[in-house]
């Protein structure tokens, strides 16, 4: 309830600010909130399918990237030997902005869902890999000793200690990366493609239909909020012990 009230307050404050700036600037590129929300509801029939396409892409990419990164990330974090081999690769690859590979992916994978999902997936993969590795390195030794003294195998140690101990940090990283993931989605959809919210926004922009453009922007913002909140919800359901 408190959370909802907080959200409502924030929305009101942001809309007020938007209204203020819009009425100061008086430019068609920044319509007033009322105009924009009217356009949003008028455009809903076109927005919903576009948002659906974008949602599928981003969920597939985030899930895939995370699930693929978790096992190797945790393994590297727990094994000195693996880390010696993997760390140089991580240090080299992690800072590279993965977006620059968009053209390559477009050439290789065409204009459909694949290049978008792969690009976002790669970004989430590296974020999760690095987070999981660091979290696994920092597990409190007493927890490991506690299960090892009971004769736990490597798999049992992973299941009872390594995964649950690192899950909170992995989730935090995922939540923080929702923004980046959506930004990349926007880029990929607007540069190459014929569907999704990014495409929708850029189309409207090209046709100088600022109302539709803002309707798209609102939809994309909503998409971010929904994914963020869904992650927070999953986090609370999975990590009840905190």
């Amino acid at each position: 309830m408190k959370r909802l009230a907080g959200y409502a307050l924030a929305v009101v404050a942001l809309v007020a600010l938007w209204w203020l700036v819009a009425s100061l600037l008086q430019t068609p590129a920044l319509p007033s909130p009322l105009t924009a929300f009217n356009a949003f509801f008028a455009e809903l029939p076109a927005l919903v399918p576009a948002a659906g396409v974008s949602l599928v892409r981003i969920v597939a990419a985030m899930l895939g990237g995370m699930l693929l990164a978790l096992p190797p990330g945790l393994a590297i974090g727990r094994s000195k030997r693996l880390d010696t081999i993997a760390a140089p690769f991580l240090y080299l690859l992690y800072p590279i902005p993965k977006v620059v590979f968009l053209p390559v992916l477009l050439v290789l994978l065409g204009l459909g869902n694949a290049p978008k999902i792969v690009l976002i997936g790669v970004v989430v993969f590296f974020q999760t890999l690095v987070t999981a590795r660091d979290a696994a390195r920092n597990i409190d030794a007493q927890y490991l000793m506690s299960v090892r003294s009971l004769g736990a195998s490597r798999m049992q140690t992973a299941r009872h200690v390594v995964v649950p101990a690192t899950l909170p940090e992995v989730f935090t990283a995922l939540r923080i990366n929702v923004g980046t993931a959506i930004a990349i989605l926007f880029l990929a959809e607007s540069i190459a493609g014929t569907s999704g919210l990014g495409y929708y926004i850029v189309q409207a922009w090209g046709m100088i239909d600022y109302h539709a453009m803002f309707a798209g922007i609102i939809a994309m913002a909503l998409l971010g909020v929904i994914i963020y909140e869904a992650l927070a919800l999953a986090e609370r359901a999975l990590i009840r012990w905190r």
Binding site: Y143, L150, H160, A165, I239, W241
Partner: peptide
């Protein structure tokens, strides 16, 4: 083996 701080898993 009871560890110095009991070794209970918080999760």
């Amino acid at each position: 083996y009871m560890l110095q701080n009991y070794g209970l898993l918080p999760w």
